[in-house]
Design a protein around this nucleic acid. Structure first.
Lengths: 192, 192
DNA sequence: CGGTAAGCGGCACTCGGTGCCACCGCCAGA
DNA sequence: TCTGGCGGTGGCACCGAGTGCCGCTTACCG
């Protein structure tokens, strides 16, 4: 339970991302992944419920981190709490950035992956909405809180997309984009 | 080209939604849909590239309508323009509401459909971002415009979700929710 | 009336995903 | 040491979505 994932799954994942990068996601069959990972096809599906999950798997860890980080934030301003939580989550070591880039690239331009990813984000949206409703004193289903939750996640997608579009952006640039997005959300989009 | 869809496709679609409602989306095979529509399986796939498209097909029409409505809006305030555009688009006749409800229900709770729908919404996001960048005088890739586009679509999803959750909400209620969501986006989420 | 093109649909195939089951290695307990 | 679970493995057969191919009908046009 302390081990987030077995060593074998890790190996499988690395080999798979390698193949996806070299020949494309759709062009790589599960059979190839299994063979390349030295494992039976059936076993592959025990580690990853779906071919998509090889790429998306870690998003769930991200959700857990988000929930935890949100809970750590004080105050009654959901924007400030969400901003701090996302900044806290998105601390990547320089060594992790290439892998992050590859993942984001896949998610960005394989429609199937983009689709599945946004479904995963639903839980993020709910978590943010619930947190905001709590801080505002709204009831759980409040439209404002729902809009907030979804808008925040949408903004973070925009941030990742913008960051990924700049080939040499580093971890600090990511933080700056997060700040910028939250500024916009906080201030609103009305013309002055 | 004037005819948005052939009569046969329309029949196919009605029969399919009927079956989805009565026995569920996943539990209905394309074979059944073809048989029920009095058409060959192969032909079914000529009308709908995917089983999902039976439910989602009309979203593309919605995009065209959105783009048109946005172009009709004057002024340099993207929020006002988007608000007016969405209000213009979402005029449903009372007779259409039950069908809309069924569609939304399916999209809401069949994950596969929710996933595919959000991919379709990418084009909406882009259209809104481009429009906003134009009105603000930002360049096309501006983060603020990207965030705006995505936040608007996210809000509209929240609106449809909220509307669908209230069984007896009518067309006016939908408009009111749209207003409320845009108010929040316009004002921003900062605490006073 | 003959020819041609477009829509139709059957057939066979690929690929992702699942249920079933046999097998292997490990660890208890007698 | 033998024996009986038990978890992980992976082969096999199957299902459903989606696609390419090809032969057929039908309707339109010279």
């Amino acid at each position: 339970m302390a081990t987030t994932r077995s060593a074998r799954a890790q190996r499988l994942e690395n080999v798979a991302l390698e193949l996806f990068a070299s020949q494309g996601f759709d062009e790589t069959t599960v059979d190839e992944l299994a063979v390349a990972g030295g494992v039976g096809r059936r076993t592959f599906f025990r580690y990853f419920p779906t071919k998509l999950d090889v790429v998306l798997g870690e998003l769930d860890d991200g959700l857990a981190a988000l929930v935890g980080a949100l809970a750590d934030q004080p105050g009654d301003d959901p924007v400030a709490a969400a901003r701090a939580a996302f900044l806290a989550i998105n601390h990547y070591a320089a060594a992790e950035l290439p892998a992050l880039r590859r993942r984001l690239g896949l998610i960005e331009d394989v429609p199937e992956l983009a689709a599945r990813a946004t479904v995963r984000y639903r839980d993020w949206e709910s978590a943010l909405a619930a947190d905001a409703a709590g801080r505002w004193g709204d009831d759980a289903g409040s439209l404002r809180a729902q809009v907030f939750g979804r808008a925040v996640v949408a903004s973070m997608r925009a941030v990742f997309s913008a960051w990924h579009a700049r080939p040499e952006a580093d971890a600090d640039a990511l933080g700056a984009l997060v700040e910028e997005a939250f500024d916009a959300l906080s201030r609103g989009f009305a013309s002055p």
